[in-house]
Simulated assay, not measured.
Amino acid sequence: MAETMGHSATATRNTSVAIGFCLLAIAPQIFEFIWSIGTIFGWGTGRGPLQVVAGHTMALATSLQSFVLILSALPGAILGYLFSWPPGPTVKSTLSSDALLALIYSYPIFAVAILTLFMTIRSAQDYVGGIVLMALALFALWAGSDLQGMRGFSFGAGTAPRMFGGLLVALSAGIALTGLMTQGAAFAHYSWRGPLFVMAAILFFALAIRPLGVVVTAFVSFMIAATGSHETRWLEAAIVGACLTLGCAILFPYVLGLPMPMFPRFLIQ
């Protein structure tokens, strides 16, 4: 019975990790969808939410066949990465940016998520950390896939991203393998409140700076970030936020000469 319960607990942990990897695989698409909501209110330019969903859904479907072909010829894909991967200009002309994101980033992470279900994870921190680093490297390879020097031995703006991205993929794979072969620590407790509110503050600043201006946006962003700590003293936070807002109001338009609106658009009009 003990062995059965132990196996069940391991399977449960693996399932949770695999679900987390699946969310990681579509994290860029989710972020773009959230960002596109701002276009409804005129806070940015680009595709709307429906266009983002349709584009990525079509890309995930159309690039699946290419990814299956790569898996069926994995040794050739590895050699192809060294000499002509990510796809060069000829291939990029037939694939959209969304399809390349699915092919280079999403489907490899999905494949890792599926394999995770059948593996025994001995060191969760090493394994998950290695996969997250691998995802970061793959995303960097996709982001630089349209730069020159990303094909063969040609040199250009994309040479360094390709080299460092490939090196990070190899190192992160080694870290993940360490988590499978050697006994290590389990997951440590991690508080999401601080990073969550800091990211929310950054997103609010990016979306609200044009319609609301520097004064309102800087102060509200600081207060949102201050919410990430249980030890925040709101009177002191408001004073510090006001001082930082004054500094931003002087720094951006006058010292740096950036054409940033100072006050909300509806007050100026």
Score class of each variant (00 low, 15 high):
29 Q>K: 13
59 A>G: 10
63 S>I: 00
47 R>S: 15
71 L>K: 13
65 Q>L: 08
70 I>W: 11
79 L>S: 13
58 M>Q: 14
29 Q>V: 15
69 L>H: 06
71 L>G: 11
40 I>Y: 13
78 I>A: 05
39 T>Y: 13
29 Q>R: 13
35 W>G: 01
63 S>H: 03
72 S>E: 06
63 S>F: 01
70 I>E: 11
52 V>G: 03
31 F>I: 10
41 F>W: 15
69 L>G: 08
27 A>Q: 07
48 G>K: 11
71 L>P: 09
55 G>F: 13
62 T>A: 11
57 T>P: 01
51 Q>C: 07
67 F>G: 03
49 P>D: 12
40 I>H: 10
69 L>Y: 04
34 I>G: 12
76 G>Y: 10
44 G>M: 09
27 A>F: 07
59 A>W: 05
33 F>N: 05
74 L>Q: 10
69 L>C: 01
46 G>D: 09
30 I>L: 13
33 F>S: 07
28 P>N: 02
71 L>Y: 05
68 V>D: 03
53 V>W: 08
63 S>Q: 04
76 G>Q: 12
71 L>V: 14
44 G>R: 14
79 L>E: 10
49 P>F: 09
35 W>H: 08
33 F>I: 06
74 L>I: 14
54 A>D: 05
32 E>S: 08
40 I>S: 07
45 T>N: 09
68 V>R: 07
62 T>Y: 09
44 G>Y: 10
58 M>G: 11
73 A>P: 00
58 M>Y: 12
41 F>G: 15
74 L>V: 14
63 S>C: 03
52 V>W: 03
52 V>S: 03
48 G>M: 14
65 Q>N: 06
35 W>M: 03
67 F>K: 05
38 G>A: 12
43 W>S: 05
46 G>A: 12
59 A>L: 08
56 H>R: 06
48 G>C: 12
56 H>S: 06
40 I>N: 07
73 A>H: 09
80 G>E: 04
53 V>P: 01
45 T>C: 02
65 Q>S: 08
55 G>H: 12
67 F>T: 01
